[in-house]
Write a protein that binds this DNA or RNA. Sequence first.
DNA 1: CTGAAAGCGCTAACAA
DNA 2: TTGTTAGCGCTTTCAG
Lengths: 350, 350
Amino acid sequence: MHNSLKRFSFVGVKKKKITLSVIAEELKVSKTLVSLVLNGKGDASAINKATQEKVINKARELNYKPNQVARGLRMGTTKTIGLLVADISNPFFARITRTIEHYAEEEGFSLIVCSSDEEQEREKRLVRMLLDRQVDGVIMTSTLSQPEDLDALFPNQFPLVLFDRYLDQSKKNFVGVDNVSATKEAVNHFIENGHKNIGFLTLTPSYISTLRDRRKGYMESLKEHGISPNEDYIIEVDYNLIKEKEYSQIKEFVQSNKEISAIFTTNNHLAVACLEALKELKLKIPEDISIITFDDVELFQYTSPALSTIAQPLADIGQKAVSILMDEIKSSADIQKTEILQTKLIIRES
Amino acid sequence: MHNSLKRFSFVGVKKKKITLSVIAEELKVSKTLVSLVLNGKGDASAINKATQEKVINKARELNYKPNQVARGLRMGTTKTIGLLVADISNPFFARITRTIEHYAEEEGFSLIVCSSDEEQEREKRLVRMLLDRQVDGVIMTSTLSQPEDLDALFPNQFPLVLFDRYLDQSKKNFVGVDNVSATKEAVNHFIENGHKNIGFLTLTPSYISTLRDRRKGYMESLKEHGISPNEDYIIEVDYNLIKEKEYSQIKEFVQSNKEISAIFTTNNHLAVACLEALKELKLKIPEDISIITFDDVELFQYTSPALSTIAQPLADIGQKAVSILMDEIKSSADIQKTEILQTKLIIRES
DNA sequence: CTGAAAGCGCTAACAA
DNA sequence: TTGTTAGCGCTTTCAG
């Protein structure tokens, strides 16, 4: 029974793991006492100042580190939030991650980060993994199409905040921007500058809300200016092709629609792809074709020419996402908040 | 004693948490059995095929998810690795993170990601946090200067892989590139193209191995070409100033050393800063000043002009880092590996 | 072939 | 003012 005696064997003494009980034993007090003191509940529990000091000193002396896994199991909370983005190597997500990390840290939370690669099955798998790991909440860009699929993934009331994209009718917290009007503003700008034949370069899967809303903004702008939309001017390319730098589709698009004088691209990767495609075709920007893209990346100011962009308020998005999530985690009430933040159209040389 | 009866109370039935015991109870078998079967040890323990199926079906029916925190506590392993980078929003680190995520996932590991912001105290705090969370290993870019400081942070034999930078005399696993010869190659290129007065733009703190080695490579190249180094041609700027886009120091540097015809910058942020500074000074690249920078970022191909860079093999770095870490975690032997990978000098228009 | 029981390290009622 | 006890959910000897 008293196998604690084994600890004194002199053969192969590995550095003993410092736990609450070790401190308790050495001080001949109970684990409870130690736990209370070390969690700052010493005064609340009216424990002797002297005893408290003893405990604190001993803990420091032994360099005691509470095991957060044990605590997590006991308390049912891990102080961890799952962050699921489409692709952490995309500067847009990388920068948001940084701000989310910042605000989460203020609340004592860490981040388990993962990338869905825009694959639904992968996303589901990752969410399950996060849940198995007992994260206290999830912040994510979902690539799912059906709200039911998303709902099925999480227990009821699970603290969750979507950002960037939302699912229709899905009653989840969301923070993002008004993609329709942001795009509209950009396309308006094209039209006001005399462009009539405006291309729209976007990605599949097209049900993703950001992509769909941007497309909607494009259509609305055209209509409001009495320009009848031409389906040929819209091109959808596959996310994977772009990642693999396969731009032939874009080149063909440009070549078979020579009357197009401006192109709107729905994200930073597409803008780069477009840059490359036009370069290979020896077309000049903006002389031959103008470009405005969604998502501002620092280097777009220095590309040739500097790209006009729609900038999202990354810091605000991260901050809101964390703050909503924290409210949910703390109150466990069903908050259901939606935050729509302001974008900024930045006109440069393209 | 039989408080399990409470579970059948009809008041306020919250969805019961599905644990091993729930399955065991419903099936009237022991937790052991369930655990064994669900962990694929059913055959090894010679458990009835029929019983196994019963268990598996029931688990599926109840949608059982093993609690990884509990398992972690019991097994002393969390299947989590801590990834500590200087700044996740830096494309260099973001892309490496993606590859590390990829390889870690293959091994069933998740990543807790955090950014040190190049601050030593912050880094220490984050490492302690990771350790408290019982990560099974750490992959990091340390911003510490003293190997003892690093050693003090970790228990003996703790699975750790440094990447990008190493600490002198620190006997830790390391994966990175040969910064001396990579930089030398770049500076050689400058010299072979007729440049004599070559600036070197770097960051503080200068003890960081990558920065120091790049500087060394710069000096060596000059010496081997019989050019006596001029201290004035070396400028160190503060990481925080760069982050805050404060480039006046760089501009002053350029203006007070007008004979400089080429500048080597030690990372991608500095290259951007340099781009901006030169732009503000209305200096042309490469006519007035040539640039080569460490770290290739996709968009550098499209800047004006396209930047010449030294590209690091990001995928390989991530892959090696994970594989070394896994070896350490699995074998718990002291491996002490160093992997130096090949860089590639990419000459573009700058 | 299956189960009882111990215990990972911690917290929280409830006693004393 | 302090200690006892009972788990959180899981895995793993060790006995049947």
